[in-house]
Each structure stands twice: as C-alpha cells, then as structure tokens.
C-alpha cells in the first residue's frame, strides 16, 4: 500500500457516499445514469469472483463494500426512487460496450481461464462504464453540483491510480499492462469533465456545458 493507492481507494469510497447522499437528500436519482451504475455492478461482480481468496482484511472489506453498494444503488434507482429516473435521457447503447469488452477480454488476457477472462473483462468494462453517464451529461448540458462532486471523486480515484502505478513500477517493479492501458483510457475520458468542473464548479458556478 502506498499513499496514492490509499487516497485513490478513499476517493472511490467517497464518490459512492456522495452518490448515496445525492439520492437520499434529493430523494431522486435524476441526472444519474442507471446504465453506468449497472455497468459498475457488473464490473464489481465479475472482478471479485476471487472474494474468498485472502489478501488482507482491507482488501476483503472493500470488495464486499463495492459489490454491496453497487447493488444497493441499483435497488434505489430501479425500485425505491424509480419514478425519478428518466430512461429517455439515458440512451447510450451499453450492448456495444459489453460486447466489445468481452471480445477484447477473450483476445487480450494474461491467461485463458474463466476467472481470468472475466477479471480482464471487468477491467476493460470499468474503463468505459462512465460513458453512459458522460453521454447523459452532454445531452442535458447541465448537472446538479453534488452530481459533479460524485463524478470528480470518481475521476480523481482513477487519476490517483495512475500515480500509484508509476510509484509501484519504481519501488516494486510491478508491471500490469492490461490494468495500465485500461486505466489510462479511463482517466482520459474524464479530461473534458475535469476541465469544466475546474472552470465552473470550483468557482462557485453551476455545471453547464459551453
């Protein structure tokens, strides 16, 4: 564990708490893409098939939290606050993402086993899981401030993982190409968002696309 990775994981936790806070406080999931949340649930379930493999208490607790919270968010969006979800705003075709990621995972993986291919699939899928949310944002052209804090925390988590990998490469000679390439793409997807968040939200303005 290093500073970057711990901070990244804490940002990831924070992002989920901010999302839960947004839904509970406003009693609405408007502005949140169900499709992105669905993809995250798929990501966590397919990645943590090794849940019973012991690495550390930290590792196990975090995995349980990510699986449980992602499914809980689906429950909130699909059942508890269903009336506040507007599917007509959430029109990104995730079938293509799922298909492309599965295909890539079948071709580019470390070992061709069931568990390993699904792990690789989850890495690729996480990289693009935010696209339905960003697409929704670009369609509506604006977002509630708390929703932008959620997205910022989520993007910061990915950015910090890049620093963690650089750190681990030099201190441990840790190499993981699949995770690096996917992580770099994932972080790059946030660059436009980061720019507007910095220009607008951090200066006290409403998040609006130019």
């Amino acid at each position: 564990m290093n500073f970057f990775r711990l901070t990244a994981d804490l940002m990831h936790l924070l992002s989920i708490f901010v999302l839960l806070l947004k839904i509970q406080k406003t009693r609405s999931c408007s502005g949140i893409s169900f499709k992105t949340q669905l993809l995250y649930a798929v990501v966590f379930v397919t990645r943590y098939l090794d849940l019973l493999k012991w690495i550390s208490l930290y590792n196990t607790l975090m995995k349980i939290f990510f699986i449980a919270s992602s499914i809980y968010i689906l429950y909130l969006m699909k059942i508890k606050f269903r009336a506040t979800y507007d599917p007509s705003q959430d029109t990104f075709r995730i079938e293509f993402l799922l298909g492309a990621c599965l295909l890539l995972a079948l071709v580019f993986n470390y070992t061709f086993t069931f568990i390993e291919v699904l792990w690789t699939f989850s890495i690729y899928l996480e990289a693009v899981a935010i696209l339905p949310q960003l697409f929704m944002l670009s369609r509506t052209g604006e977002a509630e401030t708390i929703t932008t804090h959620y997205l910022f925390a989520l993007g910061a988590y990915r950015g910090l993982y890049l620093l963690n990998w650089i750190w681990r490469f030099y201190t441990e000679h840790h190499i993981d190409w699949i995770v690096w390439v996917a992580g770099a793409i994932q972080t790059a997807l946030y660059s436009d968002f980061f720019y507007i968040y910095y220009k607008k939200v951090l200066h006290g303005q409403k998040f609006e696309l130019p």
């Binding site: 690495i55 590792n59 470390y110 070992t111 792990w119 963690n164 190499i175 995770v179």
Partner: peptide, 10 residues
C-alpha cells in the same frame, strides 16, 4: 511472468 501478477489492487 504475467501469471505472477498479484491482484492486490481493487
């Protein structure tokens, strides 16, 4: 060896 990558990250 890629198989030796320890999946300790989340």
């Amino acid at each position: 060896n890629a198989n030796k990558i320890i999946k300790d990250e989340l």
